[in-house]
């Protein structure tokens, strides 16, 4: 299992475990990260699973596809290292990764 930490807007940390091949969004939802709304369920169709990766992790994670880049244009307060967590596939290289979660998605 891959250990991940979701850092919420108020600074609180939620530890999560995920299997490689599942999505970062699923890991957040399973761990009870309520701020990851993920309303469409993970189809890159709603833009409500926005997260921000630390620069060093952003560079190591597979780059977003065109659909995700388009959708990221519409999230609240997008950052250079923003991702839609439903489109980020957990890999074993992500052991110990921290993920910042905005306080709201809509």
């Amino acid at each position: 299992m891959i250990k991940l930490t979701f850092v919420q807007a108020d600074g609180s940390r939620i530890e999560a475990e995920a299997s490689p091949g599942t999505s970062l969004m699923q890991a957040a939802v399973n761990a009870g990260v309520d701020a990851i709304a993920a309303e469409c369920g993970g189809a890159c169709a709603c833009g409500t699973c926005h997260c921000v990766l630390p620069q060093e992790w952003f560079e190591r994670v597979a780059a977003p596809e065109a659909d995700e880049v388009d959708m990221l244009e519409f999230v609240i307060d997008p950052q250079p290292t923003s991702r839609l967590s439903c489109q980020v596939v957990v890999t074993k290289e992500m052991q110990g990764m921290e993920v910042n979660v905005p306080d709201t998605q809509v």
Binding site: E39, C40, G41, A43, A45, C46
Partner: peptide, 10 residues
């Protein structure tokens, strides 16, 4: 909930 559906037709 899924009142707005899910997937590509959300």
């Amino acid at each position: 909930h899924m009142a707005f559906g899910g997937g590509g037709h959300f």
